[in-house]
Design a binder for these strands. Structure first.
Lengths: 192, 192
DNA sequence: GTCTATAATCGGATAGAC
DNA sequence: GTCTATCCGATTATAGAC
């Protein structure tokens, strides 16, 4: 039963999710997590074996969140192009970037198969769902049939991740928005 | 006059460039730099005021390198599509990713305007050169004229950066290659 | 479950000898 | 220019009291 206030374990997980998003794994210390969660050392080491264990839980949850948001667009009504377009143009906190994508640049995460696995699964899933959506558009003669939907799906997923990179470098949302507009124009040219 | 062996200052810079590429800024310690450069503490602090100073020099040099490589493709002979295609399909160490792009995920770099500036300049320059190349293709009637070359340029630059992200997450070069093939197919559809 | 104490190691640098 | 000694705070825990 939900008691209203978040319990300590939950606050630790959510604080870790935030810090991993903002700073990544190596740059996030247990102390910083405890401060944000308003929890003491003892609490953290009672609920989790250590930083690694807590981060694993936080990463898994972030991965689920990313997929759940995307899925809500892919399963919406409308043509394939419309669904992809709605996903690409959805409101985002552009300068924060992708909770999962940013972790691919963290050396300690890449060196640990357990921590990297949710990243692999997230983008594997994302490409699969985009591929299915595009293939669906091809079957319905919405799109030409002379291209590989998996390759276009990869380009779409990459565009989002790369758009974040360009925007972060610039310190502005402009490049991300340009990137998305460019990709939508390109996708439009695949229509029959 | 060039004496054959690299001097200590140079070894420090190149070691830092490598470590920033492999691990980023926060995860790279002065000690690790010294070990790789085969230089002592004293040497490092003689040639540079500290980690920040050394990293700034290393980042600037990496940025120049990235631009120099790209420029060699953009100024080559051939149609606009051919030049962009050659750039996109050039040999790369995919799983290492982009020396500059990866730094956009480093909290200490993003928090320091001096360290972030070369990132901004690199991608600003990259988008500008891609835009010029595409606009050139439009003027020559190689491409349609009904799209914004700056937006397509952003999508191309983002595709490369995002392709690295997908490949790192997967631990395989496959996603990057799919991404590039997808983008080339999309660019092909802009041809007249 | 949470608290405080303790600790080994690392990070990033300074100082002064040579 | 390079070396060694030294410093102080942060990191990532463990131990045991409450």
């Amino acid at each position: 039963m939900y008691s209203g206030a978040m319990d300590t374990r939950e606050r630790l997980i959510e604080s870790t999710m935030e810090l991993l998003w903002e700073r990544g794994y190596v740059a996030t210390s247990p102390k910083a997590i405890q401060r944000r969660a308003q929890a003491g050392q003892g609490s953290m080491y009672h609920h989790f074996t250590g930083k690694h264990d807590l981060a694993l839980e936080a990463i898994r949850r972030s991965a689920e969140q990313v997929c759940a948001v995307a899925e809500s667009y892919f399963t919406a009504s409308g043509s394939a192009y419309e669904r992809i377009s709605a996903y690409l143009t959805r409101e985002r906190d552009v300068l924060r970037g992708c909770r999962i994508g940013r972790l691919t640049q963290d050396p300690d995460i890449m060196a640990d198969p357990e921590l990297r696995r949710p990243l692999d699964e997230t983008f594997g899933w994302m490409r699969k769902r985009l591929t299915e959506t595009i293939a669906c558009g091809q079957e319905q003669n919405e799109f030409d049939s002379d291209f590989d939907p998996g390759e276009i799906a990869a380009a779409i997923a990459a565009t989002v991740q790369g758009g974040y990179v360009l925007s972060k470098a610039a310190g502005s949302e402009g490049p991300f928005n340009d990137t998305i507009r460019g990709m939508l124009r390109l996708l439009g040219s695949l229509k029959t």
